[in-house]
Design a protein around this nucleic acid. Sequence first.
DNA 1: TTACATTTTTAGACAAGGCTAAAATTTAAT
DNA 2: ATTAAATTTTAGCCTTGTCTAAAAATGTAA
Lengths: 217, 217
Amino acid sequence: MHSVSEENYIKTIYHLQDGKSLVSTNDIAGGMNTKASSVTDMLKKLADKNLAEYIPYKGTRLTQNGINCATQIIRKHRLWEVFLVEKLDFSWDEVHEVAEQLEHIQSRKLIDELDKLLEYPKYDPHGDPIPDAQGNYEKTAKTAISKLEKGQSGVLAGVHDTSTRFLQYLDKHQIELGTQIQLLELEAFDGSCLIKTDLKELHISKTIADNLYLKVL
Amino acid sequence: MHSVSEENYIKTIYHLQDGKSLVSTNDIAGGMNTKASSVTDMLKKLADKNLAEYIPYKGTRLTQNGINCATQIIRKHRLWEVFLVEKLDFSWDEVHEVAEQLEHIQSRKLIDELDKLLEYPKYDPHGDPIPDAQGNYEKTAKTAISKLEKGQSGVLAGVHDTSTRFLQYLDKHQIELGTQIQLLELEAFDGSCLIKTDLKELHISKTIADNLYLKVL
DNA sequence: TTACATTTTTAGACAAGGCTAAAATTTAAT
DNA sequence: ATTAAATTTTAGCCTTGTCTAAAAATGTAA
């Protein structure tokens, strides 16, 4: 249907969109490790195929068509991640790059059967919701620790960064999905904070705090 | 490591090799639905990468390097086929095209874990042996029905053609791996023959007889 | 509002893979 | 042994997706 490259652009635009009305060429380039000029070329092609609306010098947004395509890719990516963790003993920091390949396999039956095998999971190993076959998924309200008020607490419901390094950092400090976390102190100067889990207190940088999403209690 | 295109050439050459000392450019083109000129181009690239030995106007053979690469691709293809049939309820005529995509996914851990999940199967759904992690597999002696003597019998141990049409033909006549088959008559004129299974007698064309491999009893 | 900085697009090039048409080589057949 | 037929290679072009460098548009700050 669409090339791997097109699918990667669609996915990136979808993720960058989130609220904003238009996504900038530069942001797409940044998110994909390519140059802005390459992005411009591709945006024209996506617009030709009615997958995106492209307004030169202003930005891009996906059409409904493009959005449908994006959610299917995300569905595949997240289902494969669950498969890798549940069935093949991968740890949550190992799944991303393999899922990046698997998400481009074309077969409706494959993905529906995979969904069945995994018993229709609602969330992937990083806490992100999995769209159903129709592309619907609930966006649960999650708040970055860095946005909390001092004293508030919640359970870890998702992470923004899924890099190996970041996930291994969490493993080292015994933080995982479902871990209850309370914000004890928020340092105004650098945005770092002191948090408390069931097991211990921990000082984390703003970067980390931005990447940990809680379902507030 | 290697591109999808390179891997497909390597796989095709490996399958065409089988005994022959050199594979012809035209045969490769035929086996891949491309033109001979495209094949020539690729053969030079494979030779540069020390995956094949290419002798202009004479033919090509894989180097040990190329053979190792081919057996790994075949290992992946056949393991995925088992996965699709055993875990995802695919029928044996539905697996090929999806496995053609999955065989190019790059991840050593993925394939070794898949092997474990499937409990180290020896054969794929078409009766073909699956190479182990070191690339070793036993080539069991199988004979096409068309090569048998009148009166000989055996059990179906493999099929040559894995197209949906052919496999559905077999399903229709209740012939599957392990079915015991006896050659009753061999028509010298057109190579067609009369065979007998546990359930019934059946007249099959030479094309069919060439595609059914028996382990002779 | 003019000047500078940033962002984005265009123009031109390249690599991978593939095609057609023509040339070269090998094989087969008088 | 020559010619004819088949196979294979070369030459030149195309598409996809990428890049660099230069030009154009937009945004910002004095």
